[in-house]
Simulated scan of single mutants.
Amino acid sequence: MSRSALHLRPTPDAPAITEAADLGTVLGIWAHPDDEALLSAGLMAAARDAGQRVVCVTATLGEHGTDDPRHWPPDRLAAVRGHELRASLAALGVCEHHVLGIGDGACAEQPEDFVVHRLARIVREVAPDTIVTFGPDGLTGHEDHQTVSRWATAARALAAPRARLLYATTTEEFVDAWEPARDAFAVFLTDELPLRTPRSSLAVELRMDSAALDRKMVALRAQASQMTGLIAALGEDRVRDWWSVETFVAAERVESRTAWASWRVAA
């Protein structure tokens, strides 16, 4: 299977930010509960510990995130995942949270201008120094992730063009560690992913120590409907190792591309 690196515009290399305190007020914009914990739990917790404001936006409650819809019908799973998400964020010290209430798997069907302007209102209220979200690839190839990336990018342009916009990415180091488990765990949903972003291209690289990883694992385990089985299957040591570094590229460095291959939930 092929693997890709992001197509990055050449710019003078600058050292990656390694301290969340340097990010100022942080706004995370994500698609489903657990996206924010996997990709930015360490960042959020460290920013809060440094006295920074952190706000999280979640587009959907992931009500189709089950292979047992008879036992977990959408209304029930949405309610449970909402409770899990609040508990997860609380473990990180994050108490400001917005849910857009969009259907799981239906982001691309929404009227884009309406959602972007709704997000822009949140962005203006928060006045973030840094916005974190998915890149145009959606990190895993999920159509909801890709759509949220587009919304967040447009909302930032409207409401806070001077804010730092960061796209979550994966690195060569991550891909090499993940590859042996790829076939058993269909997390990355197209052949082009995960990305092999060179460390030299990162804008932010946060490496967590043992205590920070403990806290991230608490946040992940709080989202039990999604994470309990995955952690049990992979083993906690591997989960800790794979997700011990949170990495982001600057949006301005990512070259535009007509489309990425995408995967859509079967709603």
Rank of each mutant, 00 (worst) to 15 (best):
T66R: 04
L43H: 05
V123P: 13
A87R: 15
A106W: 07
L89P: 11
P74K: 03
E125S: 14
A108D: 12
R121L: 13
W30S: 02
V80E: 13
A108F: 10
D67L: 09
L89F: 09
R53S: 12
P12E: 07
P15E: 13
A79S: 09
L38V: 04
L92F: 11
Q146A: 06
A45E: 08
R118I: 05
P73H: 12
H145T: 08
A106P: 01
R70F: 01
L100G: 14
L139R: 01
A91R: 08
D144S: 04
A78I: 09
I131N: 01
H117N: 15
T18D: 04
E84R: 07
H32N: 02
L23M: 10
G135D: 09
R121H: 13
E143N: 09
T60I: 03
G93M: 14
G105E: 11
H64Q: 06
L23W: 01
G28K: 01
T18G: 10
P74C: 02
H97N: 13
A21Y: 02
A45M: 02
P136A: 14
A79G: 09
C56L: 07
H83L: 09
A47G: 07
D137I: 00
E109R: 14
W30F: 11
E63M: 02
E84Q: 12
G141N: 07
G101N: 14
V54F: 00
E84L: 10
P111F: 02
P111C: 12
V99C: 06
F134E: 04
P128K: 12
A20W: 00
S40P: 03
A120E: 11
R124V: 15
A46N: 10
I122V: 15
Q146V: 04
L92P: 13
V116E: 14
H117G: 13
I29L: 03
P74W: 00
L139Q: 05
G105H: 14
G138K: 06
D68A: 11
G51P: 00
A79I: 06
L27V: 09
H83F: 03
L85R: 08
A59T: 08
E84D: 08
W72S: 00
G138E: 06
P33L: 07
D104T: 06
D113Q: 15
E112N: 11
Q146F: 00
I122R: 14
L61N: 06
G135F: 15
E19T: 04
V94N: 07
H32F: 08
R118M: 11
A16W: 04
A37N: 11
